[in-house]
Computed example of a mutant assay.
Amino acid sequence: MMKGALFLVTVALLALASSLASASDPSPLQDFCVTINNSNSAVFVNGKFCKDPTFVTANDFFFSGLNIPANTENKVGFNVTLVNVDKIPGLNTLGISLARLDFAPYGLDPPHTHPRANEILVVVEGTLYVGFVTSNPNKLFTKVLNKGDVFVFPVGLIHFQFNIGQTNAVAFAGLSSQNPGVITIANAVFGSNPPINPDVLVKAFQLDKNVVDYLQKQF
């Protein structure tokens, strides 16, 4: 009896491990499912309604504009142009998206995570200092990337990119989700709506309450 129970537990754990290892956007069960804002559509896949395939055109799989630099005149000197399922309807169910990252000199893509995607980044202009931090223990992996260099950021881990050059930098990133999401750590912690109770942040970051109040006002 004990052996039978142990076998069932082992099978259950193996099944769970297998499902976690393959966790990503669901695989498509058809050639494509181009999104449409029409609740009368008969098919609903990955949170989107699908257009009748007979009305699908090449434009449903097309986006133009990644050659245009984004405005980096902001506090961090960084901006991103994300091409996800909301920009290309044909991405629905395909499990991928793309982003252009523009950096002013010494611009920063602040520490953040993508809860639903791995990221692979290639530098096409400039020099970036990049890195990610593992879950406990919090080990930092960093690298300086030059033009043509590639770096990978595992799903869910906090990571960043910093332009250490005196000129603009540009990178492109592929993400393993049609809608990867982003949680920018500073914004989430100090700029949530409604705000996190300052006493929580004082204790978590071991800061003076006046510092916490100041930081919350910045966001």
Rank of each mutant, 00 (worst) to 15 (best):
G95E: 05
F205T: 07
D208I: 15
F219Y: 07
T57G: 11
G126E: 07
P111M: 12
Q216T: 06
P105K: 05
L29G: 13
G65T: 10
A23Y: 13
D86T: 09
I183L: 12
D199K: 13
F49N: 03
N146T: 11
A117Q: 00
D25C: 09
A12C: 08
V155E: 09
S64T: 07
F205L: 12
Q166T: 12
N138M: 04
V80Q: 07
A186G: 11
R116Q: 05
T113G: 11
L14W: 15
Q161N: 10
Q206M: 02
M2K: 14
A15R: 08
A70S: 04
D25A: 07
T57N: 10
L98S: 06
H159A: 05
I96T: 06
S24Q: 09
V34R: 02
S24G: 08
L94W: 07
T134D: 12
K75Y: 07
K143A: 13
T184W: 09
P26C: 00
N138H: 12
F190H: 12
R116M: 09
L16N: 11
F162D: 08
L16M: 10
V43C: 01
T93Q: 03
G107I: 03
T134Y: 01
T81C: 04
T113I: 15
A58E: 15
P69R: 11
S27L: 14
S39Y: 12
P180G: 05
F44V: 00
V152Q: 12
N179I: 01
K143M: 07
K217C: 01
F172Y: 14
F132D: 06
S24W: 02
A173E: 10
S64E: 10
N40R: 13
P110Q: 11
G90T: 02
G47H: 02
L91A: 01
T57W: 00
N37G: 05
F61D: 08
F44G: 00
A104H: 05
T142L: 02
G65W: 02
N37A: 11
A117T: 00
T10F: 14
Q178W: 02
F7W: 13
G181Y: 06
